[in-house]
Design a binder for these strands. Structure first.
Lengths: 341, 341
DNA sequence: ATGAAAGCGCTAACAC
DNA sequence: GTGTTAGCGCTTTCAT
């Protein structure tokens, strides 16, 4: 910066003021400084600047993985937003418990970012408390944390509407397939289950715990077993609501391989609306990770400006049902009743 | 840091030495300092440290998007590797030309990272030259840049082996479907086309430009048109080699919707082996983005240590053919010949 | 509107 | 093995 100052024939203070766009610089001097900076290919050192301003210009995000549709979409909308605010994006990937423990022990983001976005973890109270002491705004994304700024989708309403969609098609025996996630990724299972139950209760359909099962993404065998169990119930489901598209697709493949027609005999509904859903013509409940990313980013920027504002703000985003080809009217109930006589 | 020093009854130098793990600290003092640091919840400011060491502790990556299988997988392997080397990961997402221009104009990574990984761009010479002047090691990933460290997959060999796989199944009319990418993402089209041609030439099968076509990911209509053109050739292909799984899947769906059996009448081969390939039982040429990410990260760390070492090193990774259910022996050629008589 | 000077929190010589 | 000291490159009072 001294070089630039010398070349422009001014002091470093003036260079600093110019480069930060302060208005207290005469146009003439400004032009000279800018030219000098350009000629010398000069860029301000964030490190040195942050040392005195106390702001790093970084936003940190804590994610369980980058290898998932949700994260990719969310960060793809978050990143340009931060950039246009002059902020850098710092990513911490915490794929397993070991990394997670180490992160919360060392808190490497400390003093290294102006805000932290925590994506999709089910944090313990101790972890939340630890983040409280981080000395920067922490925004919880895809999870609700009491009394802290959070951005998430209305999972209850999503599952409610999804279930209603199936009810409207005449289904009465509707199974719900939870995802048991790895690596602390929260799939909002509980919320979605609540919505499912709520819709059934609303419609006067009795709850049946036999219709609620769990499986893991990618666990083909497990999924097949779970399906086998559901289908061998005395009153098997005519529809299956999976709380994640990946699981829904696995279900469809398994059913079709077993010569069970989807949606003629069994309807399948997913949750997410990731590209996979379109590939498989899967009916699903859509959420928008890019909206989530954007809202979270905007909230972060506002909190950086004024850490008191919106201290406990919760941003709740909508979902909507997208009917495609895997949900259809339930097989006529009289058939089943006749079979029972 | 002064607080820690006072609490431990030592100088700040000793605190600094202790916290950086230098061995020139007596065990007894070390213990005292560490305890004090823990009690005060102290963490070293990277900003201040980097000001004097000249190293930022950041590795920057330039990516076209995060919303793609390849990037997610590559960064998911890169990130933990950097973390365990004590480095932070700084992500620059450049989704369009405007952002790209602005990035190369302002070079925000300048002075802000110790190395830059450039993923999957087709850079102009001017851009490469600009990066040369960045003052840090630049590693090119998923692309070969003459005389600069690069990490990429052997696309020629991949396409060669993929094409051979089809030739071995008896196919002689093999179409090649290029992807015309958006946002400067390089899909290594040219290399793969070279491999395809090489395999055909090797096998004495004449090249036919009518069999080489292009389409974009997600462009259903375009893909359908291209397929229509291929199928209405006087000698239509019995196999289609798409240079990306997504396109291969789009092809399969279009064919099946048109009642053309895959693989009975037409074989389809992809390239990538992303999860989608497994969902659709797609035969494909596999590459490993996580290996790419790891190799790139290791190379970056080595170059940070010694920027002269491996200055022009190219790391070339292998591919392998994964036959699944979408490639099968070509329809018996005598049928076609008889039809011609 | 501009400059001088102090200091942000740390590390690296250099002394002891 | 430990302390003292001098900056690293900026921003920010405070003068002028």
């Amino acid at each position: 910066m001294a070089d630039v100052a010398e070349r422009a024939g001014v002091s470093t203070s003036t260079v600093s003021r110019t480069l930060r766009g302060l208005s207290t610089v005469s146009p003439e001097v400004r032009a000279r400084v800018e030219q000098a900076a350009r000629e010398l290919n000069f860029a301000v050192s964030r490190q040195a600047a942050s040392l005195v301003t106390g702001r790093t210009g970084n936003v940190a995000v804590l994610v369980p993985t980058l290898d998932a549709w949700f994260m990719g979409a969310a960060l793809s909308s978050l990143a340009p937003l931060l950039r246009s605010a002059g902020m850098e994006l710092n990513v911490y990937v915490i794929p397993d418990m070991a990394e997670r423990t180490s992160f919360f022990e060392r808190l490497p983001a400390r003093r290294n970012a102006d805000a932290l976005l925590v994506f999709s973890f089910d944090l313990t109270d101790a972890e939340t408390a630890r983040l409280d002491g981080l000395g920067m705004p922490v925004i919880y994304v895809s999870q609700h944390v009491e009394g802290r700024p959070s951005v998430y989708v209305d999972d209850v309403a999503g599952a409610l509407h999804g279930t209603r969609h199936l009810l409207n098609l005449g289904h009465r025996r509707i199974a719900f397939l939870e995802t048991v996630g790895a690596s602390g990724f929260s799939f909002s299972s509980n919320e979605r289950l609540v919505g499912y139950r709520q819709a059934l209760t609303e419609a006067g359909v009795p709850l049946d715990d036999d219709l609620v099962a769990a499986t893991a993404v990618g666990d083909k065998r497990g999924t097949a077993e779970v399906l086998g169990r559901l289908l061998s119930l005395r009153e098997p489901p005519t529809a299956i609501f999976a709380e994640q598209d990946e699981v829904a697709v696995a279900v469809i493949r398994t059913l079709r391989r077993t010569q069970i027609a989807v949606p003629e005999r069994i309807s399948v509904l997913g949750f997410d609306d990731q590209p996979l859903a379109d590939w498989f013509d899967l009916s699903t409940v859509a959420q928008s990770p890019s909206d989530i990313g954007r809202e979270a980013g905007e909230l972060a920027l506002r909190l950086i400006e004024d850490s008191q504002a919106e201290h406990e703000r919760h941003v709740i985003l909508p979902t909507h049902v997208i009917p495609r080809a895997t949900t259809a009217p339930a097989p006529r109930p009289q058939d089943e009743q006749e079979a029972d006589r």
